[in-house]
Amino acid sequence: MMRLVAVLGFVVLLVLHFDAWRTPSAAPWWGWLPDELGWRLLWMLGALGYLWWFTSRFWKLKS
């Protein structure tokens, strides 16, 4: 079950990254941050969370 979640999580991140389906907003976030930059930084934050979860769950250290 957790393996499926890991695979799905990875696929979701890829789909969000290959975002040709998305129409970028012309308006900057909070009036100043370019949409392109905000979107990518947010994605990287999500990827970091995924990576920490993944390594905790699937990279068990042998004692």
């Binding site: 370019p34 990518r40 970091l48």
Partner: peptide
């Protein structure tokens, strides 16, 4: 900024 989109997220 497209160069950031092209490289940084997927690499990270």
């Amino acid at each position: 900024l497209g160069i950031l989109s092209l490289n940084a997220p997927i690499v990270a």
